[in-house]
Simulated scan of single mutants.
Amino acid sequence: MQQSNYGPANSAPSNSPLEEECLQYGVLKYGQCTIKNTIIKYAPVTDLPYQPHLKERAKSLRRAGNLSEVLFWMQVTKGKFHKIDFDRQRVIGNYIVDFYVKKLGLVIEIDGSSHDNKIEYDRIREDYLISLGLKVYRITVGDVMRNMHFVIIGLENYIITEYGME
């Protein structure tokens, strides 16, 4: 069973000139990008279950603007994070996940106090997402609020570990 991970990690971020060079000269193949000079292979999960009745609830959650989610979103929206596309408040099955990276099949959850008394619920939810072939990466609200730099580094390192090509 895939275990979820919490960030952050302890290395410095770098903008990869390799990525720009590869994109410019067409070295990267379709379905890849780079992070810290590591080629990341996309691993999309297709045909995810979707419950249309949750669409309005997801929109409502986006509009509500949970502060930690908004701060994280500001770091990753519009390709700011290695030109990777993130969805916010995405419906998957009977659940709404905080963030979803379609090209990686990666769910990102920001865990705050609302998760404190939902350990069993979160485990069942995560097991379900993993059963669909998705990976789940968890970030704490405290990390987002106090040290976004290390949250981003932790996410980069997780993606390199899980999707990097050696």
Rank of each mutant, 00 (worst) to 15 (best):
residue 77 T to D: 14
residue 58 A to K: 01
residue 115 H to D: 09
residue 10 N to W: 08
residue 143 D to R: 11
residue 162 E to K: 13
residue 33 C to S: 13
residue 11 S to E: 10
residue 83 K to W: 02
residue 63 R to L: 13
residue 62 R to T: 04
residue 115 H to Q: 05
residue 101 V to R: 15
residue 30 Y to V: 13
residue 98 D to V: 02
residue 69 E to S: 03
residue 41 K to R: 14
residue 66 N to S: 11
residue 111 D to P: 05
residue 62 R to P: 03
residue 33 C to H: 11
residue 124 I to P: 02
residue 2 Q to P: 11
residue 148 M to A: 05
residue 127 D to V: 07
residue 142 G to M: 09
residue 9 A to W: 07
residue 142 G to H: 06
residue 43 A to L: 03
residue 112 G to V: 09
residue 95 Y to K: 05
residue 166 E to N: 14
residue 106 L to D: 01
residue 48 L to D: 05
residue 96 I to R: 13
residue 60 S to N: 15
residue 161 T to E: 13
residue 56 E to W: 11
residue 107 V to Y: 03
residue 133 G to Y: 06
residue 119 I to W: 11
residue 2 Q to F: 12
residue 115 H to Y: 15
residue 133 G to P: 12
residue 153 I to D: 14
residue 163 Y to R: 00
residue 82 H to Y: 15
residue 101 V to D: 10
residue 150 F to M: 12
residue 112 G to E: 05
residue 97 V to I: 04
residue 129 L to W: 01
residue 108 I to K: 14
residue 9 A to V: 04
residue 47 D to F: 02
residue 7 G to Y: 08
residue 141 V to A: 08
residue 158 Y to L: 14
residue 107 V to N: 08
residue 37 N to I: 01
residue 103 K to F: 03
residue 138 R to M: 00
residue 94 N to S: 08
residue 108 I to P: 08
residue 10 N to T: 03
residue 165 M to N: 08
residue 32 Q to L: 09
residue 36 K to G: 06
residue 33 C to F: 08
residue 62 R to K: 13
residue 146 R to L: 13
